[in-house]
Design a protein around this nucleic acid. Structure first.
Lengths: 126, 126
DNA sequence: AAATTAACGCAACTCGGTTGCATCAAGAAG
DNA sequence: CTTCTTGATGCAACCGAGTTGCGTTAATTT
């Protein structure tokens, strides 16, 4: 699967992620792009970009799905196991450039891990 | 806040968690208890038991909210920062008795962390 | 036993996310 | 450059987890 055609909508979405300094929730993307494309399209493109390896997703504490650009991931392997930080005040969510050691668990096969740190971001600390 | 009255429904829910060996999704609880109580009641009791410190919750990769019993948590402090494991095949989700070191992040105040490991559980490995 | 009010049941609602299907346009073929 | 194929899109209707308002019930207090 993955992206097959470089449509206008796909390019638009990729640009948004290119310029974003933090992760983006699907809700925000749908809202921000609702003039350029249908919400169904946003969901479908995000799906494709994810199993393409271009984006990665994770669940926030708010129950929303968040997306951010992958660095060095391919369709076959998502190497980028970094943690994410979500501000409990303003909701801002970002990728952290920290290495996380994924613990192994007896009798189980661990494929991937999601580490979400919750707290207060720079602005909300003041 | 927290639990004020020990109603029949509260006791029922507590028993379920007492006997559970893994975490329980709200969906499963509502389904399992739909004869004993209304789904609204399930949601409300879970809320109260959580800020009571009796239960803790976390988001699964499936976007569902999961609950499990706390060990050694009070309303004022949730000390129990253990990881959770979710099977991507059968959906079984459980608390792991592993210590997780919560990394600190520059310029940010980290209150809590959620570490969700995704993989295959004992049964689904075979 | 009576009064107080937290907790419950129910129905209607919100909203993130999905599905089916007719239409459109990316890009391959000629 | 035009035609053809089919993946991608728009739209409307739908699904399902979680919430809300309100009248009623039942756990505590007096």
């Amino acid at each position: 699967m993955g992206i097959i055609r470089k449509t206008k909508s796909v390019k638009t979405l990729l640009e948004v992620f290119e310029q974003a300094d933090s992760a983006l929730s699907v809700v925000e993307l749908v809202e921000r792009l609702h003039r350029e494309m249908n919400k169904t399209t946003v969901y479908r493109i995000l799906d494709r970009l994810e199993d393409d390896g271009t984006l990665h997703s994770f669940m926030g504490r708010d129950g929303l799905k968040w997306y951010a650009k992958c660095r060095g991931c391919t369709a076959s392997q998502h190497t980028d196991a970094h943690p994410h930080f979500q501000c409990r005040d303003c909701g801002k969510t970002e990728c952290l450039t920290l290495d996380v050691s994924i613990p192994s668990v007896p009798n189980r096969k661990v494929d991937s891990a999601e580490l979400l740190l919750i707290g207060l971001c720079e602005e909300c600390l003041l």
